[in-house]
C-alpha cells in the first residue's frame, strides 16, 4: 500500500517536472509571437519600450491593425503572396513526387549518383545561388514576374528527398499487383503511390508554404514593381527611413503570419506522421 502511494507520488512528480519543462519550452517558442501581439495591441499613448517591459497592454486596441490596411495596399500584397505560395506548393508537390518516384522505385543506371547530386545541392546556401539564379531569371525575362518568383520553389531537393523516403516505405507487393493488372507506371504513381503518401505530401505542402510565404530575399532581388510585392516585402515598408512605428510593424507582422498558422492547423493531423517519414529507412 505504502509502496503504491510512493510510486503514485513519484509518478506525479515526474509528470509535474515533464509538464513544467514542456510549458517552459512552449513559452520560449510562443513568447516572441505573444510579445508581437502585445505590441500590436498597445495604444499610441503607451510606451512600447517601457522598462520594466509591460506585457499586458494598458488599453488594448485593434486600431493598429486597421492602420496597417490604411498604410499599405495590404490586400494586394496578401493576394500576391497567396498566389505565389499556392502555385509554388502545387508545383513542388507535383514535381517533387514525380522526380522522387523513379528514384525510389525504379532501377536505372546512375540512379544513386543522381540522388546524391540532388541531395548535395541542399548544402549550398541560397545566398551563393542568388546571383547566378538572378542572372538566369533576367536572361529569360522572368525578373519582376510571379513566374520568376515561383520557379526556384517549384521543385526542391528537400522535397524530392522527403517524397523518395515516403515512396520507399510503400510495400512493393502493391506495385507488383498493379503491374499484373496492366496498370502503367504513371497510373501506379497517381492511383496507388500518391494516396499512400498523403501525410508526406501534407508535410511537404506545409514546409513549402511556410518557406515561400516568409521568403524575403528572392522576392527582394527579383521584384521591382511594388504592385507585385509579396507580404514580407510589403510589411517591411512599414518601418520607413523617417518613421518607425513599431506598433504598426507588429500589427503587420501578426496579420502576415495568420495564413501560416491557418495552414498548419489545417494540415497538422497529417503533418506529424509525415514529418517522421524522412527520418526512417534510407
Amino acid at each position: 500500500m505504502q509502496n503504491s502511494i510512493f510510486s503514485t507520488a513519484r509518478e506525479f512528480a515526474r509528470r509535474g517536472v515533464q509538464y513544467a519543462v514542456l510549458l517552459a519550452v512552449a513559452c520560449a517558442f510562443i513568447g516572441p509571437f505573444l510579445w508581437l501581439l502585445s505590441t500590436a495591441m498597445k495604444s499610441g499613448a503607451e510606451n512600447i519600450f517601457e522598462s520594466p517591459p509591460q506585457f499586458i497592454p494598458k488599453a488594448p486596441t485593434l486600431e493598429n491593425f486597421g492602420r496597417v490596411f490604411e498604410s499599405l495596399p495590404f490586400v494586394t500584397y496578401f493576394f500576391n503572396s497567396a498566389i505565389v505560395a499556392s502555385v509554388a506548393v502545387i508545383c513542388n508537390l507535383l514535381f517533387c513526387s514525380l522526380a522522387a518516384y523513379p528514384l525510389a522505385r525504379m532501377s536505372f543506371a546512375g540512379k544513386n549518383a543522381i540522388f546524391l547530386i540532388l541531395i548535395s545541392t541542399m548544402m549550398l546556401p541560397f545566398q551563393l545561388l542568388m546571383i547566378p539564379l538572378y542572372s538566369i531569371a533576367v536572361t529569360l525575362g522572368l525578373n519582376n514576374s510571379f513566374f520568376g518568383l515561383i520557379i526556384p520553389h517549384a521543385c526542391t531537393a528537400f522535397g524530392i528527398f522527403l517524397m523518395r523516403q515516403a515512396f520507399l516505405a510503400v510495400p512493393h507487393q502493391l506495385e507488383e499487383s498493379a503491374h499484373i493488372e496492366g496498370v502503367n507506371r504513371f497510373q501506379i504513381w497517381w492511383y496507388i503511390m500518391l494516396p499512400l503518401v498523403r501525410p508526406t505530401l501534407a508535410t511537404l505542402a506545409v514546409f513549402t508554404f511556410i518557406g515561400v510565404w516568409g521568403d524575403f530575399l528572392w522576392p527582394l532581388i527579383i521584384l521591382d514593381d511594388q504592385s507585385k510585392y509579396t507580404l514580407p516585402l510589403g510589411v517591411n515598408k512599414l518601418a520607413g527611413t523617417f518613421g518607425k512605428d513599431w506598433r504598426l510593424v507588429a500589427a503587420g507582422a501578426i496579420l502576415s503570419v495568420i495564413p501560416t498558422i491557418a495552414v498548419f492547423l489545417f494540415t497538422q493531423r497529417f503533418f506529424i506522421s509525415g514529418a517522421l517519414k524522412g527520418a526512417v529507412k534510407g
Partner: peptide
C-alpha cells in the same frame, strides 16, 4: 504562368528613354 509573368525588362518605347531610379525606403 509564362504568359502571366510579363517579364519587364527595361525597354525604350516610342523613342522614350526610361531612367530607372532606386531609392532607399522612402515609400510610403
Amino acid at each position: 504562368l509564362a504568359l502571366w509573368s510579363c517579364g519587364s525588362r527595361k525597354t525604350d518605347v516610342g523613342g522614350k528613354v526610361t531612367v530607372e531610379f532606386w531609392t532607399m525606403q522612402l515609400s510610403p
